[in-house]
Design a protein around this nucleic acid. Structure first.
Length: 264
DNA sequence: ATGACATACAATGTATGA
């Protein structure tokens, strides 16, 4: 089975590129992030015409995640247990649409969009850490209940775990994406039993390049999109790759697909 | 060329992102 995660930066603007990728990539399950639309605005028809089923969550123009599957999509959950809410000043806390899970081809697949954090002093930074640690806690609990569970936590993690995951670590020193706090929070997911499975097959590839300042042609990017698998599922990984070509040309997302092939 | 921010919503600018 081929499982792909991709921050598409608006599914409505990018629909032709997303369908084109699906049709040539032999993808079975596609987890997308930053769909940037409400559920009622989601372009279901092109996916269904291509032979896929769709599960979506989205409240407004921000965030939004979805699962696209041609191997079934059951037991859909639009947030994970313990997923933190965020409260804007003088407003009720909202559990933002940043996680959707479903059973696809026997695997519990989660499409995740970890909060960016904005800056280290912003309330969104603490929100980012709590999102990651709550996810780790929930994952740990799931594996305690069933150590052989097949669970895939995939998406845009907005953390660069290693120094070479950004193009110039000097420039990023003590900046968002590379702080000890963010790296520890992401590591808590790994420590809960979820190994990152793409790096060993693609050791030196970014997944994101800013639109500005010729970042892509200069290959000044970041590696922030990952797939974390439970132990039994990690043992079935045959290969992984990053489709750098998807960043090329007019109308590209700023992220590219991160692809994992899983043995049956 | 792989190429010089982009998106949504509202409005002719604002919020957000990485």
């Amino acid at each position: 089975m081929r499982l792909v995660t991709w921050n598409v930066n608006s599914v409505r603007t990018r629909i032709d590129r997303v369908i084109g990728f699906l049709e040539r990539s032999n993808t079975d399950v596609l987890a997308i992030q930053e769909t940037k639309c409400r559920v009622d605005q989601f372009p279901y028809a092109p996916f269904e015409e291509a032979g896929y089923e769709v599960a979506v969550t989205g409240l407004n123009q921000w965030n939004g995640v979805a699962l696209i599957s041609r191997v079934g999509i059951e037991n859909v959950r639009t947030q994970f247990e313990g997923q933190p809410a965020f409260a804007k000043p003088d407003q009720e806390p909202v559990v933002e649409p940043r996680a959707i899970g479903a059973t696809c081809g026997g695997i519990d697949v989660w499409s995740l969009y970890v909060p960016n954090g904005r800056s280290i002093t912003d309330p969104h930074y603490a929100y980012k850490l709590s999102f990651l640690t709550a996810l780790a806690e929930q994952g740990r609990s799931r594996l305690a209940d069933d150590p052989s569970a097949d669970i895939a936590l995939v998406g845009d993690w907005n953390v660069a775990p290693q120094d070479h995951d950004v193009w110039d670590i000097e420039l990023f020193q003590d900046n968002l994406y590379v702080t000890d706090g963010e790296r520890r929070a992401l590591q808590s997911v790994v420590d809960a039993g979820f190994a990152e499975v793409t790096r060993e097959h693609e050791p030196d590839q970014y997944t994101f390049w800013e639109y500005q300042q010729l970042r892509f042609p200069r290959n000044e990017g970041m590696r922030i999109d990952f797939q974390h698998f439970s132990p039994s599922l990690a043992g079935r990984v045959a290969h992984a790759s990053i489709d750098r070509d998807e960043r090329k040309g007019k109308g590209a997302s700023d992220h590219v697909p991160v692809i994992v092939d899983i043995e049956d």
